[in-house]
Amino acid sequence: MPPFLAYDDKNPGISSRVPLVLVHGHPFDRTMWHPQLAEFAAGRRVIAPDLRGYGASPVTPGTVPLARHAQDITGLLDHLGVDTCVLAGLSMGGQIVMECAARSGDRIRGLVLADTFPAAETPEGVRSRNAMADRLLAEGMRGYADEVLEKMVAPYADPEVKAHVHRMMTATSPQGAAAALRGRAERPDYRDLLARLPVPALVVVGADDTYTPVADAEAMHAALPDSALHVVEGAAHLPNLERPREFNRALGEFLARLDG
């Protein structure tokens, strides 16, 4: 049986280096990890899926909880024969990575939590996410993409990065994005999980991120038993695209520690 998710699997040969799995955020696709695929696939296996409802993966209308996304990733890793890895996620992807840690922590050598936060949704947030899901189904993605572009990346970001981010958002299925928003509104609280995490973690955040501010990253760093915190200056919600050299340096140092 072919895997449910579309994905890139770079450098799948045998290596002493731990594989890296990259989980994108909303409303993006696996192309948001191009700078990391280019940097790290030269010497290690790097896997980047399109989540259910995004990119080239099939759309499931209705509600897709984070647990379903985590099951999809676990199924993909089973299909690819990956029994241990570093799981890296950004924003919603970070919350999916936390869900994966809750479900199959024995597979995970380390977590990378970028521009994300572990708390459950507030009642206001539940209403807001469901209202946005309704809007995307009614209007499509373009108006939303135009509105949030300069919060996803900083207003001063490189024009090519802005264009890439806008393309990802407008190419996303409204049904897929809405289903993920409804599922994300139902997410559990992962703070206790992080406080008991038995593996190292890297927390990364853009200094100018307004969705998940530096204070959220500092709180995660303080709660985690074994973590490093890296604040990327000159970036907002997508530091891996806005400042790839600095993001890759922090990620590379973390991976080198785990390879050791």
Rank of each mutant, 00 (worst) to 15 (best):
W33H: 05
V148F: 13
P35N: 07
G93E: 03
R142P: 10
R52E: 05
Y54P: 07
V112K: 07
Y54E: 03
S128E: 14
P123F: 00
A101Q: 02
L20T: 04
V153K: 02
D72V: 06
P49V: 04
A67D: 09
L111T: 12
M32C: 11
G93V: 06
A101G: 11
A70P: 07
L66Q: 07
L80K: 11
V97F: 05
A114I: 07
E147K: 14
R109F: 00
Y54Q: 12
G143P: 03
R30V: 00
P58M: 05
T60F: 07
P49K: 05
C85W: 12
P61Q: 08
V86Q: 09
P19K: 04
L149S: 07
M141E: 06
V59R: 10
V46A: 06
M98S: 03
P19F: 05
P27T: 14
P19Y: 05
P19W: 03
G94Y: 09
Y144P: 06
L87S: 02
L66F: 10
S104N: 14
L87N: 00
A114V: 12
L136M: 13
R30F: 00
N130K: 11
G62V: 10
M132R: 14
F28A: 13
D106A: 15
V82E: 12
N130C: 11
E99V: 01
D50I: 03
I47S: 11
A48P: 03
P155K: 00
W33R: 02
D83C: 04
R107E: 00
T63M: 15
A67K: 14
D106N: 14
A70C: 08
G93T: 02
I108K: 05
I47V: 15
H79T: 11
G140R: 02
A120Q: 13
D83W: 02
R129C: 10
C100M: 15
Q95T: 13
R52Y: 02
V97R: 02
G75I: 08
S128R: 13
G110I: 06
I47M: 12
L20V: 03
T60A: 15
G140T: 03
R135T: 15
W33K: 03
G94L: 10
G81P: 11
I108E: 07
H69S: 08
V21Y: 09
I73N: 09
Q36A: 07
R68E: 12
R127V: 14
G62T: 11
G105A: 11
L136V: 15
R68C: 13
W33Q: 02
L37Q: 07
L20Q: 04
L80H: 08
M152H: 02
N130A: 01
F117P: 00
L76E: 04
R135D: 13
Q36H: 06
A154E: 05
Y54R: 03
E99N: 02
R127I: 12
D115Q: 09
P155S: 04
V23K: 11
M141Q: 12
V23M: 13
H26K: 01
H34N: 06
F28P: 00
G25A: 12
M92R: 09
A154L: 00
A120T: 09
R109M: 01
L76F: 10
L87T: 00
D146K: 04
